[in-house]
């Protein structure tokens, strides 16, 4: 068992060490693969954004034309960016709140705990294709189980995936359903690393459960919550398969996200240059967000 005093050092302690080769060696294998298969391809992708491509002609250098097109002329790129922003905000918000709630519930010592843990984790095992397919069936206007049930109990049925507002909601719900088990697991791991002694100490002081949660659980869980937030954002930004099969970006373009825009440009319209330009814009946005997050996190660490 650990005392409270040692615990304090957990958050702050970080000592200066003399410069050595060791950290670079530790980073080496990861960095080699990372450079070869992520950095270099990403750079060559960016080069592509300066060209106009066609299956029938050699590619032609067009400068910033592709950027001008997607940012100033095209209506679909700004729309897909807007859709993505809205999706990311709701998706991440729900994931953070629900993963904490589920994590805390799963951490209780109740009967059937193992069963519940498995049940919540189950959807994570399914590939995105299958997840989308199953929900398409559940939500289908005519064949869906949901409307079938509503009809039986005499409630109004709705075209769940055919109205923009409803489709946007369901896209978030389905993605959360499919991934929440993984995030709850991260929270659960975080919860279990909180030493029992902390709670015992506060019990002696006569604190209540909700106080425990606010003053002990929540702060001790902060790193796990940060992990969930950032990973949730990543998953949300690169969303493609779930939505592509569930709504196909529809109705109309109500749920078209940026990756689908890129995919459509490249593989449905043969416009590789334009697709590359769109992915560069997406990358810059993500990079800016990451830097902000990092600086914010640094400040919190320093506190």
């Amino acid at each position: 068992m650990r005392s409270l005093k040692t615990l304090k050092t957990l958050k702050t302690a970080k000592k200066k060490k003399p410069l050595s080769l060791a950290p670079y060696l530790f980073l080496l294998p990861n960095t080699i693969i990372f450079t070869l298969f992520i950095i270099i391809p990403a750079l060559s992708n960016f080069l592509m954004s300066l060209y106009r491509t066609s299956p029938f002609r050699d590619r032609e250098f067009v400068g910033l034309d592709n950027f001008r097109y997607i940012l100033l002329i095209d209506d679909l790129f700004p729309r897909s960016l807007g859709n993505l922003a809205r999706f990311v905000v709701w998706d991440v918000l729900l994931i953070v709140v629900l993963s904490i709630a589920i994590g805390v519930l799963l951490n209780q010592a109740v009967r059937g705990k193992s069963f519940f843990r498995s049940a919540f984790f189950f959807p994570v095992l399914l590939s995105p294709v299958v997840v989308a397919l199953v929900w398409q069936w559940i939500l289908h206007n005519q064949f869906g189980i949901l409307n079938g049930i509503l009809q039986k109990v005499g409630l109004e049925t709705r075209p769940w995936l055919l109205r923009p507002d409803l489709a946007r909601t369901w896209v978030v719900v389905v993605h959360v359903w499919a991934t929440i088990g993984f995030f709850a697991l991260i929270i659960l791991a975080g919860l279990q690393s909180i030493p029992a002694s902390l709670y015992e100490a506060s019990r002696v002081d006569g604190s209540r459960a909700y106080q425990d949660f606010i003053f002990i659980t929540f702060p001790m869980l902060a790193p796990s919550i940060a992990t969930v937030t950032i990973l949730g954002m990543i998953r949300a930004f690169e969303i493609f398969d779930h939505i592509y099969i569930l709504t196909g970006g529809g109705p109309g373009t109500a749920t078209m996200m940026v990756v689908q825009y890129i995919y459509r440009a490249a593989f449905e319209l043969d416009q590789f240059g334009r697709a590359a330009a769109a992915s560069l814009v997406l990358f810059v946005i993500i990079l800016l967000l990451t830097i902000v997050q990092y600086l914010f996190g640094k400040r919190r660490e320093a506190l």
Partner: peptide, 20 residues
Amino acid sequence: IFILMLATLMIPIRVIMLPV
């Protein structure tokens, strides 16, 4: 290194499939 990793973390594989 860390920021670069975090940023590329979010590059969807579909987008850079061809160069990879």
